[in-house]
């Protein structure tokens, strides 16, 4: 996922996330929740250029979370239908020992799907915002007090893409080699299985060795650059820009409206506006960064 060329203030991300989460909890209307979900999806789609890869990652997110959400929805529907039982009853199956009687009512369906949407909404917005958060932002949140923890986390986050790229490279090499071997070696499933195991062993052995070597090199470079000295200050790029302030103010307003039932529609309208602004602005800076 591409990140912004000119990043937001680090505190904007948790502010946006918190607003979305609280609104998701506060809203009880199914249609308003769906509108909130649509705005979260819009923000998620901003994460990259509108390419096949973006849609693939979106589909991956949905595929990963949807089964859990469906399971949660089913349990919620069953639970909300049974406690207390409010007609009309749409479905009732015979009693199952230890589990009791499963009942599906209109109210249960309503409550269950709303509950599930709450969580799905939170999940989608978490994916969307986490895609924009950088290791530097996390360090900013942790502050000077936890600077070392922040630095360690930053290094891990910096390291993971390198590791994935390296895995790709090693797999490339192994794929070519395997293709050659496939033509030479016997085709018994046992031999193929053994070879496959050997390949996996090789892959992880290589990755582990390289990871240790890279960690060693990085530690040396850090030592040479004075890491470990007692005097330590922190460089921060974070600046509150007018845009960041407006984003936070609008989010706070949206949240305020959302908790008042009569104004909750207005609150969702505002957060959709926030999503639109975010989407427009992130796209603009993304295009700039890709030039």
């Amino acid at each position: 996922m591409h990140r912004l060329a000119t990043p937001n203030h680090p505190w904007v991300y948790p502010a946006l996330f918190l607003t979305w989460c609280l609104m998701s909890v506060a809203l009880q209307n199914l249609w308003l929740l769906l509108a909130l979900l649509a705005s979260a999806v819009a923000v998620l789609l901003v994460g990259g250029t509108p390419s096949r890869g973006t849609y693939r990652s979106m589909l991956w997110t949905v595929r990963l979370t949807l089964p859990f959400v469906c399971l949660y929805a089913l349990v919620s529907i069953g639970y909300a239908s049974a406690h207390p039982l409010v007609p009309p009853v749409w479905l009732k199956i015979p009693r199952v020992p230890l589990f009791g009687t499963l009942v599906v009512t209109k109210r249960g369906l309503d409550v269950g799907s709303t509950e599930a949407l709450h969580w799905f909404d939170v999940l989608v917005i978490f994916w969307a915002i986490s895609g924009q958060v950088s290791a530097d932002d996390i360090q900013h949140w942790l502050g000077r007090r936890f600077a070392r923890a922040g630095l360690s986390l930053a290094m891990v986050l910096h390291f993971v893409p390198e590791l994935l790229a390296e895995r790709e490279r090693v797999l490339d090499w192994m794929t070519v080699r395997r293709r050659n071997l496939a033509q030479q070696a016997s085709s018994s499933w046992l031999a193929r299985g053994r070879r496959e195991l050997q390949m996996q062993k090789t892959l992880y052995r290589v990755l582990l060795t390289n990871a240790l070597e890279r960690a060693w090199q990085l530690a040396e470079a850090m030592t040479v650059r004075g890491y470990g000295a007692t005097r330590k200050t922190r460089y921060s790029l974070a600046r509150w820009r007018p845009y960041d302030v407006w984003l936070c103010v609008l989010s706070a307003l949206a949240l305020t409206f959302a908790v008042v039932p009569a104004l909750s529609g207005l609150g969702v309208g505002l957060i959709i506006a926030v999503a639109a602004i975010v989407r427009w602005r992130w796209r603009a800076s993304l295009e700039w960064s890709l030039q």
């Binding site: 950088s134 290791a135 530097d136 630095l151 930053a154 290094m155 986050l157 910096h158 390198e162 890279r214 090199q217 990085l218 470079a221 850090m222 650059r225 004075g226 890491y227 470990g228 000295a229 005097r231 330590k232 200050t233 922190r234 460089y235 921060s236 790029l237």
Partner: peptide, 24 residues
């Protein structure tokens, strides 16, 4: 690649300054 600590260009450049306690 082996010697970079941070992800952002400016922050990476400032790493030694942080370690030496240079004022912000």
């Amino acid at each position: 690649v082996a010697q970079s600590v941070y992800e952002n260009v400016a922050h990476e450049v400032a790493f030694t300054l942080e370690n030496l306690g240079v004022p912000k």
